[in-house]
Simulated scan of single mutants.
Amino acid sequence: MLKNTQNLLDIMARLRDPERGCPWDLRQDFATLIPYLIEEAYEVVDAIERNDMDDLRSELGDLLLQVVFHSQLAKERGLFDFEQVSASISDKLIRRHPHVFADAVFETDAERQEAWEQAKAEERRAKETSAEPVSVLAGVAGSLPALLECEKIQDRAAQHGFDWPDAPPVFDKVMEELEEVREAWQSGDQYHIREEIGDLLLVVVNLARHLDVNAEMALKESTKKFSRRFNYIEQQVASSGRNLTDCDLYELDAFWHEAKQVLKRKTD
């Protein structure tokens, strides 16, 4: 196993060799690799959702390549190397699991989660470079998908008491924000409309949190469901020798409701 890991590191070093390497790999830097890093992470998720274990093995390899690539770039700049990356995450795992690697005892998942968050907070404080206190929201990556970033920010605030105690008032807030979107739309102020739509999305994420639903995954699943139903509409229209634009909304909506019933039976 370690032999294969070293072989991967050696291959990456060869690809980055100034004289014998690959021109494309030599042109890359941390910033240019960002799109590939994100894409590979999503392809891992896709393989998991499809329960394709052969593809998952392959996609995990592609994701690992991104870690190795970034580590090689850092090594060339004298910053750190793959070994130090491995050591860093190993130390972090041990530090955040005192109930496994030390004598701590947690009676509930809530106690374990609280200790986990405290460990993360201590790590953030250790990174302080000035006398200014670090915000409890610090460390949430701004490049995360918007729904996921929103959820993590809200989780941090909730851990410090800034959240509704239960779901009922959040339902009320959703309706309040929805009405504000309607008012903004009636005003015709596009900037205000966007602002209120953002507020509505934020409070919907909060509602999802209170209902123990991952908003990012819920939206992905609903988007896939929409695609399946729309594909059914396309098939029905095509079977009649027409295009979608040949049908009025009333007919397309009828196909939509038909799709809901047909596809529901197929998954039962």
Results as ranks from 00 to 15, higher is better:
Asn4Thr: 11
Leu8Cys: 07
Leu15Asn: 10
Arg16Gly: 04
Arg16Tyr: 12
Glu19Ile: 09
Trp24Thr: 10
Leu33Cys: 10
Asp54Phe: 07
Leu56Asp: 03
Leu56Cys: 01
Gly61Phe: 13
Leu65Ser: 10
Val67Asp: 01
Leu73Glu: 05
Gly78Val: 12
Phe82Trp: 13
Glu83Gly: 14
Asp91Trp: 05
Ile94Cys: 06
Arg95Asp: 13
Arg96Glu: 09
Pro98Leu: 02
Ala102Thr: 06
Glu107Asp: 15
Thr108Cys: 02
Asp109Pro: 02
Trp116Asn: 15
Ala119Asp: 14
Glu122Gly: 05
Lys127Ala: 13
Pro133His: 04
Ala138Phe: 08
Val140Trp: 05
Gly142Cys: 04
Leu147Asn: 01
Lys152Glu: 15
Gly161Met: 00
Pro169Ala: 08
Val170His: 02
Lys173Met: 06
Val174Ala: 04
Glu177Ile: 06
Arg182Cys: 06
Ser187Glu: 04
Tyr191Asp: 14
His192Gln: 11
Glu195Gly: 03
Leu201Glu: 12
Val203Cys: 01
Val205Met: 08
Arg209Trp: 03
His210Met: 08
Asp212Phe: 03
Tyr232Arg: 13
Tyr232Lys: 03
Glu234Lys: 14
Gln235Lys: 13
Gln236Ala: 06
Ser239Leu: 01
Ser239Lys: 04
Arg242Met: 10
His257Val: 07
Ala259Arg: 08
Lys260Met: 15
Val262Cys: 01
